[in-house]
């Protein structure tokens, strides 16, 4: 083992010296002692050279623009944080005040019966659909970069998002309803990666399908799949959970139009 009991002590001083953490006097003192220790002196020199070389490594990444996927994650992360803070700050106040902060406010307009077990499950589902609506609000108005991967690279899009969501995804087609695929993007969510697919009709109206692993542990056994409605500001969403995955279809359409589209999507999954 170690024949020099003081080796780690000397090493510690050498590290501090290499990493610029010694005061001028401590440094001078060390150098004086190293005069009698050529081996330690050589180590110091080598480590300094090594540190310089390491600091040159991949420096190009510090100046390179941030890839689009990471930029999107930064935006999404920030949005989630901001909306959470608003929610926490204003949550207890009158709805009128809260409505002023339209983003981040989730107005509960669910339909359907609420058994006890469902109530327990509602919060994660709320979070999911709220994030879907936020993602719709952020990306659907984008003119130049609405998606990361466009419809022309459909095969790549589906492969990439399937890999990131760790599950083979299917791209629903909404041609019959007049909507063409624009493309998709990857987003972070509470329960892991989420995918957003965007569709657009001839009038330029957009709907987004938001997909991710179910925020609820399991579907309540014996219950049928149900579409649930929620509205956040002017954005409406229908969401449902199917075989461990959650889906939310969001847009500015009327409730009836959106429900039809949601059924259309669900049939193809």
């Amino acid at each position: 083992m170690n024949t020099h009991p003081s080796r780690q002590v000397i090493d510690d001083e050498l590290h501090a010296c290499v990493d610029g953490r010694l005061s001028a006097t401590a440094r001078a003192d060390l150098q004086q002692r190293l005069a009698q220790d050529p081996q330690a002196r050589a180590t110091l020199q080598d480590w300094m050279t090594q540190r310089d070389a390491l600091r040159q490594l991949h420096t190009q990444l510090l100046d390179e623009p941030i890839p689009a996927a990471l930029q999107a994650s930064v935006r999404q992360t920030q949005l989630v944080r901001t909306s959470r803070q608003r929610w926490a700050r204003w949550g207890g106040m009158a709805a009128g005040v809260v409505m002023a902060f339209s983003l981040g406010w989730f107005s509960n307009a669910q339909i359907g019966n609420s058994s006890g077990s469902r109530l327990a499950q509602q919060q994660p589902a709320h979070d999911f659909v709220r994030q879907a609506a936020l993602a719709h609000a952020v990306y659907s108005p984008e003119v130049r970069h609405p998606v990361e991967v466009d419809a022309a690279q459909e095969e790549h899009l589906i492969q990439w998002l399937s890999k990131r969501l760790n599950r083979p995804l299917t791209l629903p087609r909404l041609h019959d309803a007049g909507f063409q695929l624009v493309g998709g993007r990857l987003l972070p969510g509470d329960t892991g990666a989420r995918a957003q697919f965007m569709y657009q009709n001839a009038q330029g109206d957009r709907v987004t399908l938001y997909v991710g692993s179910s925020p609820v542990d399991a579907q309540v056994p014996g219950t049928d799949l149900e579409f649930r409605y929620s509205a956040q500001g002017s954005i409406s969403s229908f969401y449902w959970i199917d075989r461990g995955f959650a889906y939310a279809l969001s847009g500015h359409q009327t409730r009836q139009q959106l429900l039809q589209l949601a059924r259309h999507v669900h049939q193809q999954l």
């Binding site: 996927a69 990471l70 994650s73 930064v74 999404q76 992360t77 989630v80 944080r81 990857l186 972070p188 969510g189 509470d190 329960t191 892991g192 990666a193």
Partner: peptide
């Protein structure tokens, strides 16, 4: 890095 941001998000 992406995973880190996703984690930060949650």
């Amino acid at each position: 890095v992406q995973d880190t941001l996703e984690r930060a998000c949650t």
